[in-house]
Amino acid sequence: MTAATESSSLGAPESVTRRADETTAGAGRGDWRALATQPLLVAVGVLAFVLWRANATLTETEARQLGWTALWTGIREHLLLTVASAVIVLLIAVPLGIALTRRPLRRFSPLISGIANTGQAAPAIGLFVLLATWLGFGFGTTVVALVVYAALPVLRNTMVGIQGVDPRLVEAGRGMGMSAAAVLFRVELPLAVPVVLAGVRTALVLLVGTATLATFIDGGGLGVLINTGITLSLDSLLVSGAVLVALLALAVDWLGRVVEHVARPKGL
């Protein structure tokens, strides 16, 4: 083990669990206020952008790139990349995380977390390009790269969430005659929900950000705006792309928080 992988394998879960703690602490009125503030900020941001776009004097190239249809296509592609990758991440990482906390597979958990850690520690752009040389350019490859990149927080939090359930509760469940499956579905998973969802939200935000790199392997999305802005030295395009991605990330993060708030089991 080199020092670099060592620190990354420690660093990532820490940040993940810290986020989890943040969201599990207290569900009072302050929480709702925070939840209400975020969409307000996003709305203000969107409004500001729309006003600027409607009133700015733009060159022909800028106007074409920032046309309402072009923008809408970019946003749609970006969301599609994010959602498709997120769904695949959920389908793979949650069951895998659960399986790795079961007794027969528990010994593989360091190996799998190691692999997942490497996936996240690798520079995203390198991952995109490597996969593209292997699988070819396009939407599919982008989704594969995004899945590899974002699986870690969900996998990690699923495992941490389940491992964080008081072992005495598991014993109490078994001791009263619940089967192993019943304990998993009625005790361990419900109690792990807040931590798992925090991981999902982290992954979503990562996905929105990382999906901007899709443009380099012909995957579309808002990265196209940013990339064009850079190559043509058009700051208006660059900033528009960046602002839109940021607003999208904030909106997705907010949705995640709402889901966490609603899905958190009562009594915790």
């Binding site: 005495r168 014993e171 469940g173 001791g175 089991p265």
Partner: peptide, 10 residues
């Protein structure tokens, strides 16, 4: 068991 071992989400 100690502390009852109650399930906190029920």
């Amino acid at each position: 068991i100690q502390a009852g071992g109650l399930f906190p989400h029920m």
